[in-house]
């Protein structure tokens, strides 16, 4: 399909190396508004490395071009949050909230995901799944145009997965890049498949 819009991200010959190993090598690709892309590949094929490169956390060669004002929401695969921090869920989100609009986003999503009852709980008392959803809400605070989610469903129950899929990922206009191993889900949601191979690397969209 020929896209008439400008791409949100234009990626040219992205390569990530460590010492003499090539961790990731992709052909060029673009992400447009409303694109729904599922990133597939075995463990170690570079899905996380690709996502970290796209959000500016990974040194790389090649070019990633985007509009300076592009709003990206990012959910990392491994959360590095120190859960012993003396915070309730509300206080934790508040650290990242910068204005009343973002406050409303947080409140709305806490309601939508049935997490209102967690607001005053300490973050170290949450289950992995509950905390995953809180981090997802954190990624939505800036009203992203492109959502990059690294294995967001790994700790979630079916009900939450459906809620997030229908209420968020299928939202009109929102571009989504999600790494996931569940091929049934990809097909049922009509996401485009982007495959990374282990020995680095052709990329198929």
């Amino acid at each position: 399909m020929i896209q008439s819009q400008l791409p949100l991200l234009d990626v040219q010959n992205l390569t990530v190396t460590r010492a003499h190993d090539v961790l990731l090598k992709t052909t060029s690709f673009q992400i447009f508004p409303n694109d729904k892309i599922a990133l597939c590949g075995p463990n170690g094929s570079g899905k996380t490395t690709l996502m970290r490169s796209l959000v500016g956390l990974q040194k790389h060669q090649g070019r990633i071009k985007s509009n300076a004002n592009l709003r990206i929401g990012y959910l990392p695969q491994i959360d590095n949050v120190d859960k012993h921090f003396p915070f309730t869920v509300h206080r934790f989100l508040k650290v990242y909230i910068q204005n009343p609009t973002q406050e409303k986003v947080a409140t709305d999503w806490l309601q939508k995901l049935d997490l209102d009852f967690l607001k005053n709980k300490q973050i170290d008392e949450l289950s992995r799944g509950e905390f995953q959803k809180i981090l997802l809400i954190r990624s939505l605070l800036n009203d992203p145009q492109l959502l990059i989610l690294d294995e967001p469903f790994s700790c979630l129950d079916q009900q939450s997965i459906q809620l997030i899929t229908k209420g968020l990922l299928q939202k009109e206009g929102l571009a989504v890049l999600i790494s996931i191993h569940d091929h049934d889900w990809i097909e049922s949601q009509s996401f485009k498949k982007m495959s990374l191979e282990k020995e680095s690397t052709p990329l198929h969209v």
Binding site: G56, L57, P76, D79, N80, V81, D82, F85, F92, V95
Partner: peptide, 8 residues
């Protein structure tokens, strides 16, 4: 709280 996310 989360150094990686701060860099993001």
């Amino acid at each position: 709280i989360d150094e990686d996310y701060a860099r993001f």
